[in-house]
Each structure stands twice: as C-alpha cells, then as structure tokens.
C-alpha cells in the first residue's frame, strides 16, 4: 500500500517561481523526490529542461547543491562525487551522514547520450541514485526524436511518425544486476515516494525512471498532465514495477493488468488525446499502425510477465 498523500512530509526542495513551464511533470516529480530524499543530497543535472528551469544566476530554483555537467557524463560524474565523499569521510574531513548523490536526467541523457556512462556506473555498482524523467523526446530543444519516443509519435525529426519502437531502458538497467530498479509516474505520488525512500536506504546503484507527460511535446492540453500519466498506466503503455536484487514485483494498478485480473484499457483513447499521434490516426493506414502500437504494448507486458517469473 502506497503512502497516502496526507502522510507525505512538508519539506519543499523545489522552490516556487522556477522557470519551468506551467504544468511541468518534471518539477511535479522532483517535488515528490525532494520529499523522499530530504535536504541532505547532491543533485547532478545534465542539459535538460530541468537545467533550463532552475532559474538565472544568482538565484536557484532547487534547494540542493546542484552541479551542471556535460550531457554524456551523468553516471561517471555521480560516481566520482560519491567516491570523493567516501574518501573525505575516511580522512575525517566530513562528519555525519553522507549526502545522497543523485542524478536528475532526461530521457536523452539516459537512453541515448548518457548511456555508456550510466552503464559503467551500474557495472561498478557505485552508490548513487539515477533518476530518468522520461518525457519521450528531446523536449528542451523543441521536441526531437529520442530513443524513448514510442512508435508512431510525431516529433520535428520524425514528421510522419517514428517507425521504430522505443527501448525498454528499465529492463536494460535490471540486466546490469544492480540492487534496485523501479519505474514510476507522476500520477501516483505515494508510489513514487515509497520507491525513492526505499532506494535511498539501499547501498549501491539505484535506477528510477519517472514517466513525465510533457504537454508541449505530446501536444495535449496543459491541465491534463496528470490525467495523461494515469491513462498511460491504465492502458498498459507504462508499467509500474520495482525490482530488488533482480526480483520484480508489480505495483497497482499495473499488477492487476499483469496478473490478468483487469484488462488494460484500449490504447486508442490514450492516443486520441495526444496531438503527436494525430497524423497517424488520420492517415489511410491508421488501423494497422494502431495495431502495431498495441502490439508493442502487448509484447512488453508479455515479456515482463515472463521475466518476473525468474527470481534467482
């Protein structure tokens, strides 16, 4: 049972009046992450919307020490910082509890450009939390295609819809044999909070991916950010699960879909709401392309259902 809203702590690590768009899912998710991590943490940011929205010098919109690094080095920089902190503690220069080192990176910095540094950090099992907020495109630079963009989606570099399916990054990270992997979304804040608290207390590399429906990139109405995130989970396009030492367990409502107790909502309704699938839905071959997207979703569900049976 996820933590109820009324039991979430009061602490605010994302300050009002930052430069993010109204209804930004990244700041929405980061607020909940801040409640779970507390103030004793160091934040690493690669070029992304979150860097653009942190405000202008000498003011900062996040209440953590923030380090802006190059796009490709989120994993390696976080490793370096966590090792430096350990050495400083050994030499007696740092007292008390070590700060949590976490990277807050978009899907471009995780799926594409930052992948080798992240993979290296995971293989070394360094003590960091790597957050990927996944808005399924390079939204900061004006919505270009990324490895996380789903099939059929419009971006400025795929004007007729992307032809390839997206990567399953969380599963890739799971196969790095790291202690904790989880997926979350902004519509379920209690679930996200629990996962971050759990990750904070596990030593070693942790990977948490947060789906963040970006209204500019996905082309839906600004107030529907949370609705869209909820619809993604209900249609099975996004699955909520966590894996401790390789053992997968599913969270509600995805667990009901996986176990077959409840059918996933048809993907049509989820696609209709988003302007980025408009051309696909209006085209002459709409039905076959929707069937393709539904096929991708069904394959992911079938794959992870079988993967969850492997518990050794």
């Amino acid at each position: 049972m996820a933590t109820s809203i009324k039991k979430l702590p009061d602490i605010e690590q994302v300050l009002s009046g930052n430069g993010a768009c109204g209804g930004c899912p990244a700041t929405m998710g980061l607020r909940i992450v801040g409640k779970a991590l507390g103030s004793n943490a160091i934040m690493l940011l690669t070029p992304s919307c979150s860097v653009a929205s942190m405000g202008m010098t000498p003011r900062l919109g996040y209440n953590w020490p923030c380090i802006n690094i190059t796009f490709a080095s989120a994993g390696s920089s976080a490793s370096g910082i966590t090792h430096a902190l350990e050495v400083m503690q050994e030499k007696g220069r740092l007292h008390g509890e070590l700060p949590t080192v976490f990277a807050w990176v978009g899907d471009g910095g995780t799926y594409d450009i930052g992948f080798q540094a992240l993979s290296g950090a995971a293989e070394r099992n360094d003590n960091i939390i790597f957050f990927c907020y996944n808005n399924e495109a390079y939204s900061n630079t004006g919505v270009q295609r990324s490895g996380a963009t789903p099939r059929g989606s419009f971006t400025t570099t795929t004007p007729t819809g992307k032809r390839q399916p997206k990567k399953n990054m969380a599963l890739l990270m799971l196969e790095h044999n790291i202690p904790y992997v989880a997926t979350a979304t902004v519509a379920y804040p209690g679930d996200l909070y629990d996962k971050v608290v759990k990750a904070k207390n596990i030593p070693g590399m942790k990977y948490i991916e947060i789906q963040a429906p970006c209204y500019l990139g996905w082309q839906f109405d600004m107030p529907e950010t949370v609705q869209m995130s909820r619809m993604a989970v209900r249609s099975g396009a996004w699955l909520l699960w966590e894996a401790e030492n390789g053992k997968i367990s599913f969270n509600n409502p995805s667990s009901l879909i996986i176990s077959g107790k409840k059918d996933a909502a048809p993907v049509d309704e989820y696609l209709m709401k988003q302007g980025r699938f408009n051309r696909l839905l209006k085209g002459p071959d709409a039905e076959s392309r929707i069937a393709e997207i539904q096929g991708d979703i069904d394959r992911e569900i079938a794959f992870i259902r079988e993967r969850a049976k492997i518990t050794i």
Partner: peptide, 17 residues
Amino acid sequence: KAYRPISWPTKGAGGDT
C-alpha cells in the same frame, strides 16, 4: 553573495512567474 559566481536557492528564480 551576489558577486560570487554561485547561485543560491531563492524563491522566484525565474522571476515573478
């Protein structure tokens, strides 16, 4: 503080939004 090349956590980092 203002002349150091360091940003400090402040409300309204993006102006009066």
